[in-house]
């Protein structure tokens, strides 16, 4: 049986803008993925613990409040602590260009800014299968 790719879509921090997260979740669903959605206002700890229990292949973080530089790297750090850093983490939201390389250094595999075509996000996740 074909392996199903599972992706966690999460909203870290206090930001309540969930338009993008929901649109991406639907696009991934329509591309045949299993998408776990956390809802709003998640701490990095909740996100990582959820990712482990759900055994996801990837995490997509959405944050439009500007808190990404604190919250995104924290998720990667906690994954490392749990030995789950083979989960691919990407992020989206209002991320200034100059933050992108810093996020990549911190272990965020991709940053999807406003206007990113959904098919790019889908293609990115098709390659996100974790090794078992």
């Amino acid at each position: 049986m074909e392996r199903k790719i599972r992706v966690l879509i999460a909203k870290p921090g206090l930001d309540g803008h969930d338009r993008g997260a929901k649109v991406v979740a639907r696009a991934l669903r329509d591309a045949g993925f299993e998408v776990i959605y956390t809802g709003l206002h998640q701490t990095p700890e909740q996100i990582v613990s959820t990712a482990v229990q759900e055994d996801v292949d990837a995490i997509g973080l959405s944050c439009l409040s500007g808190a990404h530089m604190t919250l995104f790297p924290r998720v990667v750090e906690l994954l490392r602590e749990r030995g789950a850093d083979d989960i691919i983490v990407s992020g989206g939201g209002i991320v200034p260009e100059e933050d992108v390389p810093k996020l990549k250094t911190a272990g965020i595999a991709a940053v999807f800014g406003p206007g990113t075509p959904l098919k790019d996000i889908v293609e990115f996740h098709k390659k996100a299968l974790r090794k078992r």
Partner: peptide, 11 residues
């Protein structure tokens, strides 16, 4: 149709 799902009960 697509085999996909959004799993949101745990919210």
């Amino acid at each position: 149709f697509t085999g996909g799902a959004i799993l949101g009960d745990r919210i």
